[in-house]
Design a protein around this nucleic acid. Structure first.
Lengths: 360, 360
DNA sequence: ATAGTCATAGACAGCGCTGTCAGGCTCTTG
DNA sequence: CAAGAGCCTGACAGCGCTGTCTATGACTAT
């Protein structure tokens, strides 16, 4: 497992050479200092930019660092500076959430964190809120980002209690003191209603998330729904709302009931991303052409997914990348920790799945 | 012993909660020791179980720990023990991979790591192989798990060079010295062929991954294909293989060509999970019933996904959970680091999407 | 020319924990 | 009853780095 003989001795080349060094001992800051002919603290300062170092010295130190391939020991830094440079990301374990979006956010968080010279530690809800207490309490992480925030999320209490830097992706009932970022789902709902109203639709259906989602954390699902319904009312659209579980048969049932209850429905707004594919298939096989007979507007899928469907979907995407980056910015950036709620404006991408209603 | 120097009282967990506690100073091991009337090293031993502690002492210490809500400082432990108790998980950034499976594996890795009292650090390919060098070199992580391993993966060289504990999910061209775990895709391909042959099919098509996947890292995709084709030959099946990109139109084109080139095709094996939904829809809308007219066997989707389709899919699932757990076991478990290749046997779940060929 | 100022580098004391070591204790045995 | 054998425990020396404080030198202004 270990590298038997390093090609060059990483220790002081002018000092006594000890050939018996089985483990590939990591270079220390002290060795770099000796190599550069400066004191350890100078090296530390060069690395952290904590004080003015004259260019020649900085260069010498830099050269020594490169030459020795020096990497500072993370634990030692964390101990001495009481900063771990690690952000904990609490990801959901839910089955009824759209996974690709979560993954995209997680990746966005990771790349954004790296830009701030931080790493990302994954914690799942498996441990429950105690996981947060653990990583924050041990100093493993010095910031926490919560995903899939519920309206009354028990993790929030832990965050407040610990006073740890944190940001939320999602909007709880009481965001007091905690920075949050989320898509403005109410505006998204309204935007969807507007688009359909503008096209001339008069009777529309909102196919939402599974019932469990509404029951549990009415957050984004409920916001979308009410934003949509309010705007429908304003624009004189008749709207119905139907929750939809993430199963093919569930989608089939919902779709059948929609056209049974409201045969005049000419447009569907779909929030449960996992069901868009099946719904399109069902519409097709029931002889309804999209968008000639019925328009479909999706809320939530990412751009590429929407463009890969057939027909290409008119949709309001989830800005996964933005959400991740903003969350990191809120917790590590300039104005880190300043509470505040950022609602990202929804953007409607019009493609081929919406059109004027038949005979419209 | 108890100098009044520490008149700074320890918070009573049952007392009123004071929201104004700007510096929630963390308890240290020394404080616990004082509180329990023992020496710091004794407390350390109680925590790490490094030596025999008499039950009464252990109990006193345990009580003090609980009472003070003590959590050891991760950085200090890492420094003193040169073990970070962190596993780095290198996740892919690819767009052409099935994301839900990746997420499931990541979650399995995380829960398994927790069982070994480790945490998981996320690193993306964004940093390239240098990310691995960084987390291992700084002692941030003391083990690395690679996902989405390519046949000739440049990250493997870094792993070998650093001599860091590692395990791979996937199978590179040369796994020498590195423990690997993967689904036995060749066996999966053979199993698929057997199932279809048993049902009486004579002419079948394999709809594979996107061409890029074959070009880049022929690993699992190529293994599946050859396992399938070899077995088809043995069983006297006529088989064709078609790569399939992850777009609706791509799937449509592939499907059309399959039936054009081989009108007698009665069964499809699909490996590109993202395209299963679209393919089922296309079959339906082209008037082919599944499984009456054509059988469909999926390789890769997880059980729940397969059961949510309509019809429920006969499939060989990717054992995401097992893969994650095994990978952790290989790198942290009893026989950690022992190189060896674990090929998980494929399991075929027969549901409704396969049947005898028409007129069979 | 001399005192005062600033810029720069070094010394040093920890950060909180681990792990080794030797010593003190009780218990056993001749 | 005394000496040997174990079992616990406390003392102690770092792990590698940070950050503050002080010392040194060069430079400016009088």
């Amino acid at each position: 497992m270990q590298h038997p003989a390093a090609e060059h001795d990483l220790r002081d080349p002018h000092g006594p050479y000890d050939p018996y060094q089985p483990p590939p001992k990591a270079t220390t800051l002290a060795e770099v200092a000796r190599h550069a002919g400066v004191s350890p603290s100078t090296v530390s300062c060069v690395i952290n930019g904590k004080r003015n170092i004259s260019p020649p010295t900085r260069l010498r130190v830099q050269a020594a660092i490169d030459e020795l391939g020096y990497l500072p020991h993370a634990g030692a830094r964390a101990l001495a500076s009481s900063k771990s440079r690690i952000v904990a990301l609490a990801v959901p374990l839910r089955a009824d959430l759209y996974v690709p979006a979560m993954m995209q956010i997680a990746i966005a968080v990771t790349t954004a964190a790296r830009r701030h010279d931080h790493d990302v530690l994954l914690i799942t809800n498996h441990e429950g809120p105690e996981g947060i207490r653990r990583v924050a309490g041990t100093g493993l992480a010095d910031a926490v980002i919560l995903m899939d925030v519920e309206l009354h999320d028990e993790r929030i209490a832990v965050l407040r209690e610990l006073g740890v830097a944190a940001s939320l992706i999602g909007l709880p009932a009481d965001p007091e003191g905690l920075p949050c970022v989320d898509l403005d789902f109410a505006a998204a709902g309204a935007l969807a209603a507007d688009h359909l109203a503008d096209l001339g639709h008069r009777q529309v259906a909102f196919i939402g998330m599974g019932e469990g989602v509404y029951r549990r954390r009415t957050g984004f699902a409920e916001r979308t729904r009410s934003g949509f319904e309010d705007r429908c009312r304003e624009r004189g659209l008749r709207a119905i709302h139907r929750p939809c579980d993430s199963t093919y048969d569930g989608a089939a049932g919902v779709l059948a009931r929609v056209f049974e209850d409201r045969p005049g429905t000419t447009a569907l707004v779909v929030q449960n991303e996992a069901m868009i594919g099946p719904l399109l298939g069902l519409l097709r096989s029931s002889g309804r052409e999209v968008p000639q007979d019925v328009s479909v507007l999706a809320i939530g899928p990412d751009e590429p997914a929407a463009r890969q469907s057939s027909p290409r979907l008119t949709s309001i995407g989830l800005p996964a990348h933005d959400l991740g980056h903003r969350a990191v910015e809120l917790v590590l950036g300039e104005n880190a920790g300043e509470p505040g709620v950022i609602m990202l404006p929804p953007r409607l991408a019009v493609w081929e799945s919406t059109a004027e209603p038949p005979g419209g």
